[in-house]
Amino acid sequence: MLQLFRVLNKMFDKHKESRRRHLAIHTPIIIPVWSQLNQAVSGQLSPEAIVELRLQAYNEITKNIVNDNIFSQYMHKILPTGNYLWTFKKQFAIQVALSCFMSYMLQIGGRAPNKILFAKNTGKIFQTDFHPAYDPNGMIEFNELVPFRLTRNLQAFFSNFGVEGLIVSAMCSAAQSVVSPKQSQHIWHHLAMFFRDELLSWSWRRPLGIPSVPVAAGMINPSDFQQKVVNNVEHVISRIKSISPHCLAEEEENATEPPQSVQRGVTELVEAALSSRNLCMMDPTWHPWF
């Protein structure tokens, strides 16, 4: 494209009317980097060696280039001091916890910083392009090692007290309320309606080369479509129950091992989200060092 732009610029320069109007397409100088020269891309290294290389690069970036206080410094500069900062942190932590809960519940990935918006006066969060992805069989697909976005800069801003006290407890409360006996039937039906509309839309926007399955045209068996919806709903419900304190407490009653924290499901997810070995495997456009 840049070569084409430069050719057009030469044509503009040779023509009297375009030259008089200074018509020229901006063509910046771009140096391409060929990843084929890398041993990790060419297949000369084992998967374990590639992980170690990525972890080494990630550690170098986080130690020498991007520290864990960038977000904290920014927030302290733009927010008033005093009680307002404490109130903002509390509200923002709860919003982050709910976003993490929804990301884990529906297996929504691709949470790059440019897709997360928050209000500086209220701490409320809105996420763009926030919807699950599906595999060719119509099941939720998730290909990221981290369950949600909770990086080191956010951890430094909230401190360990904010992460363990506010975020973990808020996620546990959200999971417990959704799968409680009084709410379980409601969430099941609402998820069924959600996945019905999602799969109907997904069937029409499938990539090229994969045949579409429009239900309205009668090209798919209604029972198969219903089974896809049910499978997705059951999968989501099981994920919520796996971190719900109520369900974990019931398991403890029948277990012979020593009792553990009922928040361990969410705590393990937070540890996975903050793990350097998991973060280093994320795509660079995800900006895991932030």
Rank of each mutant, 00 (worst) to 15 (best):
L45P: 03
M1A: 06
R54M: 10
K16H: 02
K63L: 13
N67H: 12
L2Y: 06
F12P: 02
H22Q: 14
T27W: 03
S72L: 12
V33Q: 09
Q39F: 07
I61A: 03
T27N: 09
V33A: 08
V7W: 03
A57G: 06
E60C: 09
H15C: 11
K63D: 15
V41A: 10
E48W: 02
L4Q: 08
N69F: 00
L53P: 01
H26R: 13
S46A: 12
M75E: 03
M75R: 11
I25M: 14
M75G: 06
A40V: 03
P47N: 11
E17G: 00
R20M: 04
S42C: 05
I29K: 14
P47Q: 12
K10G: 15
S35K: 14
S35P: 01
S46W: 02
E17F: 01
L53D: 07
G43M: 06
Q44F: 10
V51A: 12
L53C: 06
A40L: 05
F12M: 10
R19N: 11
L4W: 08
N67A: 03
S18P: 01
I50G: 04
L2K: 01
R6F: 00
M1K: 02
R21Q: 12
L45Q: 13
A40E: 13
V51Q: 14
L45T: 10
N67E: 07
P32Y: 08
S46F: 04
S72W: 02
L37Q: 09
L55K: 11
Q36Y: 11
R21M: 10
A40T: 08
I29F: 14
N59P: 01
P47G: 06
S42T: 11
L23Y: 09
L8P: 00
Q3G: 12
E17L: 04
S42E: 08
F71V: 12
